[in-house]
Simulated assay, not measured.
Amino acid sequence: MIGGYGRGADILNGVTLDVELGEIAVIVGPNGAGKSTAMKAVFGMLNIHTGSVVFDGEDITRLSPQARVAKGMGFVPQTHNIFASMSVEENLEMGAFLRRDDYRDTMAQVYDLFPILKEKRHQHAGELSGGQRQQVAVGRALMTKPKLLMLDEPTAGVSPIVMDELFDRIIEVARTGISILMVEQNARQALEIAHKGYVLVQGANGYTGSGKELLANPDVRKSFLGG
């Protein structure tokens, strides 16, 4: 993908991403490398001048984000990702707005994945801790029954203990057959759970490999993982 926002300069200068069924693919790299921009390009939130987005065998490059949700994409932005004045349960119900079937089974699955949300289901989401808010945001995306779940910095601003718990839940989601594409600032920890990793440098692929391969790469370790 090559592209950027509006008619501005290109931010992506040749990014190739691939996520298979049930895989966790992680995008890491320095600030300003185009990580979140690449994620937004996959979701249709900016213009791709060269390249394409193929989802489930179909070219969806020209589809709107809303149409991509209907195709099976779920996106959790880094900030402003919950309805703070609504209850936890109402947030989850908002995730099912496109569905015409009975979504109660999916809600039960979300509560199984995040038991604290069931406990606090009648509480305003804005009253929750940072980690619990992230669980609400991920849960709401799961209510769309996505084939691909995209997470932009899911552990930003949470404690190491909460980060580990979120990563455990992400692994559980992938085991259900949902693909995960994740941008993450905690690069070392994210690569430890990744089937596939992409290190972006100045809007292009710098290094690509399995999570283990990138963790073992001395250049990646020195430049991006602190040695």
Rank of each mutant, 00 (worst) to 15 (best):
G4H: 10
G4Y: 03
G4E: 07
Y5F: 14
Y5I: 02
A9V: 06
I11P: 01
L12Q: 00
G14K: 00
T16M: 13
L17Y: 13
D18H: 11
D18A: 10
V26S: 12
P30M: 12
A33N: 01
S36L: 08
T37M: 01
M39N: 14
K40A: 06
A41E: 11
V42Y: 07
N47T: 15
H49Y: 15
T50D: 15
S52T: 11
F55T: 02
G57T: 01
G57V: 03
I60M: 05
Q66E: 09
R68C: 04
V69C: 08
A70M: 14
M73G: 10
V76L: 07
Q78A: 07
Q78G: 13
N81I: 02
A84M: 05
S85M: 10
V88Y: 06
V88L: 05
V88R: 07
E89L: 15
L92I: 06
E93P: 07
E93T: 09
D102R: 07
Y103P: 10
R104C: 06
D105S: 13
A108R: 15
Q109C: 09
Q109K: 14
V110E: 06
I116T: 14
K118D: 12
A125R: 03
L128S: 00
G130P: 08
R133D: 10
Q135V: 13
V136S: 13
V136M: 10
A137Y: 06
A141N: 09
T144K: 02
T144D: 07
K147C: 08
L149S: 00
D152A: 03
E153M: 02
P154I: 02
T155Q: 01
T155G: 06
G157V: 07
S159K: 03
S159N: 04
V162D: 05
I180Q: 04
L181S: 01
L181K: 01
V183I: 14
A190C: 11
L191S: 08
A194Q: 07
G197S: 12
G197C: 11
G203D: 05
N205H: 08
G206D: 09
T208Y: 09
T208A: 11
G211E: 14
E213V: 11
L215C: 03
R221P: 10
S223K: 04
